[in-house]
Nucleic acid binder design. Sequence first.
DNA 1: TCAATATTTCTAGAACAATAGAAATATGAA
DNA 2: TTCATATTTCTATTGTTCTAGAAATATTGA
Lengths: 128, 128
Amino acid sequence: MNTENALSAFAALSQETRLQIFRLLVEYGGSGAPAGTLGERLSVPANTLSFHLSHLSRAGLVQAERRGRSIIYRADFTFFTALIRFMAENCCRSDVAQVRDDAQSGCAVIELAACCAPATLTPQGDKI
Amino acid sequence: MNTENALSAFAALSQETRLQIFRLLVEYGGSGAPAGTLGERLSVPANTLSFHLSHLSRAGLVQAERRGRSIIYRADFTFFTALIRFMAENCCRSDVAQVRDDAQSGCAVIELAACCAPATLTPQGDKI
DNA sequence: TCAATATTTCTAGAACAATAGAAATATGAA
DNA sequence: TTCATATTTCTATTGTTCTAGAAATATTGA
């Protein structure tokens, strides 16, 4: 995950229909759902849906796989958690959102401070 | 944090200059920085910067406070961590990103699963 | 009061994104 | 083959966002 990836992911998620599509795909989990089902559930015409799905796909948030006549879309959870991690690590402060890898479980753990007002620091990182 | 907040936050963060501004404000932490300093550091004309700052402000990502002739901008860390939390809780799965409140430290803790492929579930939540 | 500084608001043009009809493509089934 | 189904691509239109010049506003200091 880099800045460019994050920018296009934010752009993809900033549109109401696309955020709905993504959240619906999250519900469907690893099995995913065909485009038609998504369009039906969200009442979006097939061509408009296709436009948004390709946007999500280009951004890396979803994966597509043809199965017969249908194309199955899946939320890419690896990408999405990488985005969350990028936000905590690269768009925040370690005293507000601390990221560590838990070797035992293999999980990445993000601790969000209770009190989110960070210490006052100079841009050079010196505490005042 | 609700869907509407998240949508406008994503829109605000999806523009390169605005993401740069936000990350620069993160560096300045609780003391923030005046608009002029940001514009100078990013080589963005004052009026263009003002447009982006008001976008970030409307979205809730930054706070503004006049101090003399300058207006000091600060990243809103409370809002930003709420956004991260919203993403984990409302745009992901509990088997991929689990959120819990640690009563002892007062922190919210997000555990990102090592293996991000979730179980295959029906939209009704039944495991297959 | 006047000038200087910091920032915003107004404005208009250029670039980009969203929508949906129509046509095209890919697949499977008769 | 031919037809039906699922989805995408093409196209045009409409709406939105970005940029930066010019003018306006707010604050301070002389």
